[in-house]
């Protein structure tokens, strides 16, 4: 079966030059392949490197060794070696990431934040705003908030803006880092629905879900990230 996202022999360690050059290994010889339409939930104890793996998959952390292949416009691209421009292009067209926290841009209203990745891909502004509006509404964000910058929103409201931004473009590969952490039951249902729809249209999803119920309902399989025990 062809993959949408595949990590091969992925290794990652951090060298802390300011602490005498100590090296902390986090990931070692990791192999993970995700098919289109498949949702893989990362499991493992806290501190095992789940978030590090997610960040590597997004290109936010550089891979120490191995490769991270992502099918971008039909051909595999190795995020471990791709230059900055190519990574940006992959993120624009193929790879989405919903983090736990919204990185708020001052003075930009919700609607613009959600519509921005759509217009970046060439969608007309009106259409992008309409889709953003629809998605925010579906996530139960009151319309009176749509035109406000989310800096003063509650954690749950910010998280929903973040989710709308991540789901709006319909990325072929989507990384979800605790997408339901600060949501109530109703909104959790909405997110489960969004994930199911994304899978149905063929998106490959990798997620960290601490909420066991959500995980069981969306994940096709678990991928265990084991902590590396011995020190370097």
């Amino acid at each position: 079966m062809s993959f949408a996202l595949r990590a091969e022999n992925l290794g990652k360690s951090f060298t802390l030059h300011l602490q005498g050059g100590v090296t902390l290994p986090v990931l070692r010889a990791l192999d993970l392949s995700v098919a289109p339409g498949e949702c893989v939930a990362l499991s493992g104890p806290s501190g095992a490197g789940k978030s590090t793996l997610m960040r590597c998959l997004y290109g936010n952390y550089g891979a120490g060794s191995g490769c991270i292949l992502i099918r971008h416009h039909g051909a595999p691209v190795d995020l471990a070696t791709a230059d900055a421009r190519l990574v940006r292009e992959v993120r624009r067209d193929t790879l989405g990431y919903v983090s736990q926290f919204l990185r708020v841009i001052p003075r930009v209203p919700c609607l613009e934040i959600v519509a921005e990745p759509l217009t970046a891909r060439g969608m007309a502004r009106d259409e992008a705003l309409a889709r953003a509006e629809a998605l925010l509404t579906r996530l139960n964000l009151p319309p009176r908030l749509h035109h406000l910058p989310p800096a003063t929103f509650s954690g749950g409201e910010q998280q929903r803006v973040n989710l709308a931004r991540g789901f709006a473009p319909g990325y072929p590969v989507l990384l979800l880092d605790e997408p339901t952490a600060s949501l109530d039951a109703a909104n959790r249902e909405v997110v489960i629905g969004l994930i199911a729809e994304a899978k149905a249209r063929g998106a490959a999803i990798v997620g960290i879900f601490h909420d066991a119920e959500v995980r069981d309902r969306v994940a096709d399989r678990l991928f265990d990230v084991a902590p590396i025990t011995e020190a370097a």
Binding site: R55, G62, A84
Partner: peptide, 21 residues
């Protein structure tokens, strides 16, 4: 040098690590 978020979140060079921290 590189992608902004990668350089700032996963700095490799000692000087960059100093700058970011």
């Amino acid at each position: 040098q590189g992608l902004t978020d990668r350089v700032l979140d996963d700095p490799q060079h000692p000087y960059t690590q100093l700058l970011v921290t």
